[in-house]
């Protein structure tokens, strides 16, 4: 029966409101290549938004440049398709000014680990409350196959016809070596339930949650991750009461499944550099790290009139005076 008092109480949700479904979080049709791993990530975040009932107008996806960074276009939320490597500082700006928004960052291995590496280090250190998804396909796909910092040694590409000379950068090991980190996880796009669970936990972590997602590029590196996809023995599933929880049916698929306490940073670093098996799960979590927005909030509270005044001040800098 309809209860107007409860319905109008701020502490009780309005029963007349419709719940959001995944369709409410669909933007324009995704235009990635067939079978692209980015689709799995898109589905996972859309599912998260629906499951958590995030208001689309209170949610923003920020990206840089690259295949991965097209994701905000495909979301039915606010989005910011920023400059190459600049997704993180843009997201920080949004968060410091609007801490009430749910901020997600989608960045690629080129965007984050190359041109945006400086921002990456400091964003981790600032530990602002946002979820950062690193779509790591180990190649520049949007510009048709050039090596990225995470490309394996020997990879032949248009910029490395004789094969890549350098050992790849390990985004997990690099992040786990940074200061003030609070959440680091590794996922793969071809295990959707595990991917969702990791992103779900990342979202609920207060602080910067860094999720590196190994993402297939079927167009330019079609067999790059076959060794892991076709042989579950090469995957090391990390579970823990304080970390990743997976259904028994999923856990049974993996011969190598171990309990890993995500508060153990030294062990996390060991796992991140494991050459034998790819760790999947939550490597590190420390909920005690202070968020930057908690210690440095925007001082002045602007009213609508204040905002108009500030905008006018900015616009006046570009006034074109009519010539007489």
């Amino acid at each position: 029966m309809f209860d107007p008092i409860k319905t109008l109480s701020p502490s009780v949700p309005d029963i007349d409101d419709d719940a959001y479904s995944m369709d409410d979080f669909e933007g324009v049709n995704a235009r990635w290549c067939h079978a692209c791993g980015n689709n799995a990530i898109l589905t996972a975040v859309q599912k998260l938004c629906a499951e958590e009932q995030l208001a689309p107008e209170k949610t923003v996806f920020v990206s840089g440049i690259g295949c991965s960074s097209r994701l905000p276009h495909y979301m039915g939320t606010y989005g910011f398709h920023a400059l190459h490597g600049r997704a993180l500082p843009i997201a920080e700006g949004i968060k410091i000014r609007r801490p009430d928004l749910h901020v997600f960052v989608n960045t690629g291995d080129g965007d984050c680990c190359s041109i945006g590496a400086g921002h990456w280090i400091h964003a981790m250190r600032y530990n602002m409350n946002m979820t950062v998804l690193l779509h790591d396909n180990q190649i520049y796909g949007l510009t048709k196959k050039q090596i990225s910092p995470t490309s394996p040694r020997g990879l032949v590409s248009s910029t490395s016809p004789r094969g890549a000379y350098l050992e790849p950068l390990n985004p997990l090991a690099a992040t786990l070596g940074m200061s003030n980190i609070s959440f680091v996880a590794n996922a793969v796009d071809w295990l959707p339930s595990v991917l969702y669970e990791i992103i779900h936990q990342a979202f609920h972590h207060r602080g910067l949650s860094f999720v590196r997602i190994v993402q297939r590029c079927p167009r330019y590196l079609p067999h790059q991750f076959d060794e892991y996809m076709k042989d579950p023995e090469r995957i090391l599933l990390l579970t823990h009461a304080q970390g990743l929880h997976v259904q028994d049916a999923v856990a049974r698929r993996f011969k190598h499944c171990m309990e890993h306490d995500p508060s153990d940073l030294d062990r996390a670093r060991e796992l991140a550099t494991n050459q034998e098996r790819l760790p999947v799960g939550i490597l590190y979590r420390n909920p005690g790290v202070l968020c930057y927005e908690d210690v440095r909030t925007s001082v002045e509270h602007l009213t609508a009139a204040d905002k108009v005044k500030a905008l006018e001040r900015e616009f006046d800098k570009f006034t074109v005076q009519p010539t007489s």
Binding site: A30, H34, A35, A40, P192
Partner: peptide, 12 residues
């Protein structure tokens, strides 16, 4: 179904 990565290949 629970392992599908939503890549649109079959639906396309």
């Amino acid at each position: 179904t629970e392992l599908c990565t939503s890549c649109n290949d079959c639906t396309d």
